[in-house]
Write a protein that binds this DNA or RNA. Structure first.
Length: 275
DNA sequence: ACCTCGTCCTGGTTGC
DNA sequence: TGCAACCAGGACGAGG
C-alpha cells in the first residue's frame, strides 16, 4: 500500500527516467483511472508535453509539464509506475517517451487515479482541499499535531489517517508511529497529552524517513520503478506482526480494528485511555 | 462540524 | 478437492 515513503521512493527512482523527457504518446486503458469520457482527451493532452519536474504532496505524485499543467497520480492500493513497456501484469496506461523508453502504470485493483490539473491555481486548489501538513516539513511538530487534534474525540489513529489533517500517513506508518510513541490508537485524539504529541511527531518523522531510506515496504505489490523491492517490512515493529513478541516488552502483539482498519498494538506498551 | 460506515476493486485465503 | 464467501484498505460521500 503506497504511503508517503513508497510514493517518495517512486518519485526519486522515476525522476531520472522521466524528467526532461517529452511524452510522445500516451495510452490509457482503464475506465477508472480517468473517467471514460475523458480518457482520450487526457491521453491526447499529455502527448507532446515535456516533463519538467517530479514532485510529491502527501501520497500524490505530481508530474509537472512544460505547458504549466500537472498530472496528479494517486496509486491508492496497488498502483505502480514501472520503467519499460513490456510484460507487466495489470497494465492500465503507458507513457511513451522521446528516447524510445516508456513508463508503464499497473494497478491490480484499479483504485488509482490520474488527473490533469491546468495551471498553478487549479493544482493548488486541488491539493489544499485534500491535504494537510506535510509531516517531513519544518513546521511539523507536537504543537502542529495539537492544533489538528484539538477538541477531537475520534480515535487518534483515525485522524492520523485523515489526509486533510496530515498528508501521507497510511495504515502501516500510523501503527508504527503510535507504537513508538506508546499511544493506544483508540485514544481520543484531543486527549493525547502535549508531551505525547511531541513524541508522536518525532516518531512519525522517524518511521517515514526510515521508510524512504528502505525504499518503502513491499508486503505484496509494491515495487520500485526499476522492479526492486522495498525492505521496510523487515523493520516493522508491530505492523503485520500480530502474535509475535513486542520488541520492547516481549508480550504478544495484538491485531484490532480501529477506524475500519486492521490495527496492530502492544496492549502493554500502548495503554488504553478513554474519554 | 464531527464522526462512522459503506462503496469501489481484485485475487489470495479461508471455510464448508 | 472444489467452489463460494470473505478479507485487505485509501479516499470519498452519505447519513446520523
Amino acid at each position: 500500500m503506497p504511503e508517503l515513503p513508497e510514493v517518495e521512493t517512486v518519485r526519486r527512482r522515476l525522476a531520472p527516467h522521466l524528467v526532461g523527457r517529452t511524452i510522445v504518446h500516451a495510452r490509457i486503458d482503464d475506465d477508472r483511472l480517468v473517467r471514460p469520457e475523458l480518457r482520450e482527451a487526457v491521453a491526447a493532452r499529455l502527448a507532446g508535453t515535456r516533463v519538467t519536474e517530479l514532485d510529491r504532496r502527501g501520497k500524490h505524485l505530481l508530474v509537472h509539464l512544460d505547458d504549466g499543467a500537472t498530472l496528479a497520480i494517486h496509486l491508492r492500493m496497488t498502483g505502480n509506475l514501472m520503467v519499460g513497456a513490456d510484460g507487466f501484469p495489470h497494465l492500465r496506461a503507458v507513457l511513451e517517451l522521446d528516447d524510445a523508453t516508456a513508463v508503464s502504470y499497473t494497478d491490480q485493483r484499479r483504485f488509482g487515479t490520474w488527473r490533469v490539473l491546468e495551471g498553478e491555481p487549479e493544482l493548488e486548489e486541488f491539493l489544499s482541499e485534500r491535504l494537510g501538513i506535510e509531516p517531513l516539513d519544518a513546521g511539523f511538530d507536537g504543537r502542529a499535531l495539537g492544533r489538528a487534534f484539538a477538541g477531537r474525540r475520534a480515535p487518534v489513529k483515525a485522524l492520523l489517517l485523515d489526509q486533510r489533517l496530515i498528508a501521507g500517513v497510511g495504515n502501516i506508518y500510523a501503527d508504527e508511529a503510535l507504537w513508538a510513541a506508546k499511544i493506544h490508537p483508540e485514544t481520543p485524539a484531543g486527549l493525547v497529552s502535549r508531551a505525547k504529541l511531541d513524541v508522536l511527531a518525532v516518531a512519525l518523522r522517524e518511521v517515514l524517513e526510515a521508510g524512504i531510506l528502505a525504499q518503502g515496504s513491499t508486503l505484496r505489490d509494491f515495487r520500485t520503478p526499476d522492479g526492486g523491492y522495498g525492505s521496510m517490512q523487515e523493520r516493522f515493529q508491530v505492523f503485520d506482526r500480530d502474535g509475535e513478541p513486542c520488541p520492547r516488552c516481549g508480550r504478544p502483539i495484538v491485531k484490532l480494528r480501529v477506524a475500519g482498519r486492521g490495527t496492530h498494538v502492544c496492549p502493554h506498551c500502548q495503554r488504553r485511555r478513554r474519554a
